[in-house]
């Protein structure tokens, strides 16, 4: 065959997986921050931020992640910006993540019963006080499980960034497959790698969901 050993394959894939984890974390943290901004814009009383946030969410949920990455990556060079695959990947996934998290969280805020708004309003609280003391604490508890569940989508979404040349798990896999002529073995291991990252997250999300429905979970 050639001089690439199984150990070399595994070692390189682990390296790639590290980049996948790094990219996922970056997108999740930055996307979470941007998602919070979107959430507050979406539930604002003023219609202007509400509509802007809605347009943003519709653009990023209504187009494929791959197109978003292409536009950032190639669009950057078109206007003379040299954007590295890492920056394009991180930026693209952050925007994608924020659009989904913002919307998931809005759903959680809106699932707090209307009576909670009425009761706090009748106690003369302002909108901000109602949010801070009554609505958000309840929405937060509802949000944990779907947020962790969505993190699985972010991890899998990182695979798309291989197409713009960012060397994460999938890209490492295709380079190794070309070099070793063993695509089944290599991509089998790649899939295993994604499963090892995602399964604990989705299992954790399921546990959280059960806890929230089953008990008060203070």
């Amino acid at each position: 065959m050639n001089d690439i050993s199984y150990w070399d394959i595994v070692r390189n894939l682990l390296d790639g997986a590290l980049w996948t984890v790094g990219l996922s974390l970056t997108a999740f943290i930055l996307g979470g921050i941007a998602g919070l901004v979107l959430l507050f814009a979406r539930i604002a009383q003023n219609p202007i931020p509400r509509r802007l946030a809605q347009a943003y969410i519709e653009v990023f949920q209504g187009t494929p992640l791959l197109m978003q990455l292409f536009i950032i990556f190639f669009g950057g060079s078109l206007i003379g910006l040299e954007i590295s695959p890492w920056i394009a990947a991180a930026l693209g996934l952050t925007l994608f993540t924020s659009a989904y998290l913002g919307e998931i969280w809005r759903g959680c805020v809106e699932s707090v019963p209307k009576g909670q708004w009425e009761a706090s309003a009748s106690l003369a609280m302002t909108h901000v006080e109602q949010m801070r003391h009554v609505i958000l604490p309840q929405a937060l508890r509802i949000a944990i499980a779907p947020t962790v569940g969505f993190s699985v989508q972010v991890v899998k979404g990182t695979a798309v960034t291989s197409i713009i040349g960012f060397v994460e798990l999938t890209k490492t896999g295709s380079m190794l497959a070309n070099a070793t002529y063993q695509p089944f073995l290599v991509f089998g291991l790649v899939a295993l790698g994604y499963f090892a990252l995602c399964y604990p997250l989705s299992a954790y999300s399921r546990i959280l969901e059960r806890n929230i429905h089953g008990s008060r979970a203070h």
């Binding site: 019963p113 009576g115 009425e118 009761a119 009748s122 009554v134 604490p137 309840q138 508890r141 008060r216």
Partner: peptide
């Protein structure tokens, strides 16, 4: 005001 459904803050 007191409501039909109590509307206590559950947290």
């Amino acid at each position: 005001m007191v409501f039909q459904q109590f509307n206590l803050f559950p947290h």
